[in-house]
Nucleic acid binder design. Structure first.
Lengths: 109, 109
DNA sequence: TTCCTATCCATAGATAGTCTATATATAGCC
DNA sequence: GGCTATATATAGACTATCTATGGATAGGAA
């Protein structure tokens, strides 16, 4: 009965999108998504870090250890050219699906 | 790399919605979703029947064996009052999520 | 008559993507 | 010194999907 904190299958897209505004560390990405969505979408650590590993593995992001403004070590993720392209693909597929679902839901009962 | 035929987490909602137009058998539900979505959404048998079992178990649909117009035995699923209510809940949660994702995607990069 | 296709139900097993829970570490504040 | 927020990461469970089957039958084609 438990509902997911986000719509499955959309996390990679949300992360990639967040990174278009510049490199960020994982924790920052999670905060950004939470804030931009007005607290509707929450990314748990157990979802976030595996997702970042996936993105690294596909070459859609690059990672680099740096210090944050708060003087902590953190791993900053940066969107690659391939990642930018992938984001476009995912967004357009997502929109196509949403439109299709909208058509089904719009039917008169 | 393989993309899902539908957005995970939306199947139950789509089935319930389809049944608001009257009782249907599983195969008919799958065809309806495919047709209404202009072939964008495809429900595989391996997703459909487990989903119908779930819905039965929750009491959101009832099942009854009948004959189709094509003279075959088929199991017709009918939305219950609880199912109708559940559909409302799922649709509103879904729309909330879509809006939230939209806000994230709308951000200037 | 026989074969083929579309219609119909259903399950097993693999896979993917979440979540929960936990572990570790540190900066800065009280 | 302890607490909170910041930060990374993994193990294990769980859910929901897909792939791949298997079986049955009606009706039309060959």
């Amino acid at each position: 009965m438990k509902k997911s904190d986000l719509l499955p299958g959309t996390l990679d897209m949300l992360i990639l999108k967040t990174l278009t505004r510049g490199a960020q560390h994982g924790y920052g990405v999670a905060l950004s998504i939470k804030r931009l969505s007005d607290d509707v979408l929450t990314v748990e650590e157990g979802s976030l870090y595996p997702a970042l590993q996936r993105l690294l593995l596909q070459g859609w992001v690059k990672a680099e250890w740096k210090m944050t403004e708060t003087n902590r070590r953190a791993r900053f993720y940066k969107l690659t050219a391939a990642g930018k392209k992938q984001l476009g693909v995912e967004v357009s597929q997502f929109e196509q699906m949403i439109d299709a679902i909208g058509r089904v839901l719009a039917e008169q009962s």
